[in-house]
Nucleic acid binder design. Structure first.
Lengths: 116, 116
DNA sequence: CGTAAATATTTACATCTGTCGATATTTAAG
DNA sequence: CTTAAATATCGACAGATGTAAATATTTACG
């Protein structure tokens, strides 16, 4: 186990953006999550996985949804995984990614949550 | 008036991430918003403004909250403004930025909204 | 083992990004 | 008109980012 927190582990930390100012530390923990989602390809990947039945999808299907090389999709999936937004599981030759819906829920609340 | 939509004008477009896959066009409209928030300094700026009384703050106060040069803060504010997340109004020599809370609410719902 | 398929890693490269110093612009006050 | 203060723009630069080609790794199957 690691003492390092993934960005996603920090997102449940704080009251909404609009309620009180984020600390520097909080902002540095959360920004990487938003940055990970701040690319059109990754945003679609996240949506494809999250909206897929079971909240899970095979890389083989994801590759076909884009006109991008396989390494590029793999690269984007890695970024979403490292942010903690996608969980990875291998079954045979296939790799499945699962959306971390709790993280999305927390992040949504942080951004859209009511202020004072 | 312009035919170009700011990113923030497109965020109320669609059902949550987890409900159905975002189209390429939708993703390209929304990703810039998340990207704008995906920097620690801008995330704190957004939070400072949004949580300030009246949802509004003067640049003069924002500059003092960071150990960064004035041009750098100005640059970040411009990015948030161009994304449509901050509204700009000048009063005398001072410039005030106001949080677009509707946009934050829509974005939060898009990310954290319930899937199927 | 040898081969094929799925996915990840490495390497390279053009473009983008965050930052600052210098400078410009705008406004208020003498 | 001059000056000073607040903010924006410009120019430059180191470092990050998105992409693809080539290669490696892992797994299943004969």
């Amino acid at each position: 186990m690691s003492l390092e927190l993934t960005p996603v582990q920090t997102v449940a930390c704080c009251s909404p953006l609009s309620r009180e100012p984020l600390s520097e530390t909080e902002a540095e923990g959360i920004a990487p999550l938003l940055k990970a989602l701040g690319d059109p390809v990754r945003l679609r990947l996240m949506s494809l996985v999250a909206s897929h039945e079971g909240g899970e999808a095979c890389v083989c299907d994801l590759n076909d949804a884009f006109e991008l090389s396989q390494p590029t999709i793999s690269h984007h999936l890695k970024i979403l995984h490292e942010a903690g937004l996608l969980e990875r599981s291998k079954r045979g030759v296939w790799v499945y990614y699962r959306a971390q819906t709790d993280a999305l829920k927390d992040l949504g609340a942080l951004i859209g949550g009511q202020g004072r």
